[in-house]
Computed example of a mutant assay.
Amino acid sequence: MKPLPTSNQNLLDQEAIAAWIFLAPAAVLMAIFVIWPIVYLFYLSFTQGNFTITGVHWVGLKNYWRLLVSPDFWQVMGNTIYFTLATVIPSLVIPLLLAVLLNQALALRGILRTAYFIPSITSLVAVGLGWRWLFQTDGPINAFLLSLGFDPIPWLSSTVWAMPVLILLSIWKQLGFNMVVFLAGLQAIPLNRYEAAEMDGAGFWQQFWYITLPGLRPTLIFATITTAIFTLRSFEQVYMITGGGPLNSTNLLVYYIYDQAFAQFDFGYAAAAATILLAVALILVYIQLQVFGDENY
């Protein structure tokens, strides 16, 4: 004879049904706006053509092969790697040090936190226009250099200096957000750990290395992943300041995808490049979780 369900089993079934009912709207929205676009992007990467009356047709791995043999694509990948590494590391180190300083009992702590966070809520398009004005040949930065006796630098027309301008802007933009995240993580570390360390004679750097950094481990994982994703999807800086130049030296992968799709109308090729960008982002997140994560996180 089949046993009758107990009251606990009925309760669990009711809770499961209620959970699915509440999750259904979010699941539907995710399927429409996240999963389906990714699936369609993957399909589009195996096609060629455009969204006109001629339509698209299947070409298999041709788009991926074109990427592998394209010198421009590999230059863009090199630019993206350089830009990402040069942006992510300072965007973590500088906000962490600022958060440690602001976590102390300073009189102007609230004002400083607000001042550092303002760039994070400022329009990147407007900021890009401002930075282009600052670093143009006859702009304020070169005027300041001339006042110090230095020769002006062709910031935006130099293959050497154009990328550092974009990197500096990206660091400035990300700094405030990461600082607030680190401040929240610091305030979650129990004070008695620092008190015990002081009683044992530990100095500032010893406390930072053995208490602060281990206590911030989950926060560091979150900040690293979000900063890497923000950096990989950088587009507005290139679009507003350099347009990928000079000589393709500041062309990043997202801008390259945009140019191929909406300037060259080569949607299949652009979709293949976007698929590679998605794969790179997923690989980076996996590596970061493996390196910095642990069983308790």
Rank of each mutant, 00 (worst) to 15 (best):
Q174V: 02
A105R: 11
L92R: 02
P71H: 03
L277G: 01
S7R: 12
G293S: 08
Q290V: 13
I283D: 12
A263H: 10
Y82C: 08
A261D: 06
G185H: 08
W209Y: 12
W131N: 00
V100F: 07
A115D: 03
F144R: 04
S234T: 09
T242A: 09
P119K: 06
L289M: 15
L102D: 01
A105N: 11
R233M: 04
L96D: 03
W205T: 09
G128Q: 14
L12Q: 06
T122I: 11
L61N: 14
A274V: 03
L12R: 11
P25Y: 04
P95C: 03
L220R: 01
L106G: 13
L220Q: 01
G203N: 14
R113Y: 00
A19W: 06
T47C: 08
Q237P: 03
L191Q: 13
D72I: 09
G130M: 13
H57T: 15
I225T: 02
G149Y: 11
T54N: 11
T226C: 08
Y269H: 09
S158A: 12
F83A: 00
A223K: 01
L289E: 15
Q14F: 05
P164A: 07
G49S: 05
G176A: 13
N103A: 10
V69L: 11
L67C: 07
V238Q: 03
V56H: 10
D138W: 11
V34L: 15
F135V: 03
F33A: 03
M1C: 13
P140Y: 12
N248I: 09
S234K: 02
P119N: 06
S249Q: 11
F292S: 02
A223V: 15
D138Q: 06
T137Y: 07
A126S: 15
P190K: 10
L29Q: 04
L282G: 03
G293P: 02
W74D: 10
H57L: 12
V254N: 05
G268F: 06
A274T: 01
D259H: 10
L29N: 05
T227G: 04
V88E: 09
S91C: 09
Q187W: 04
L186C: 05
R66E: 15
G215C: 01
P164N: 11
M30R: 00
A18Q: 06
V125Y: 11
G268P: 05
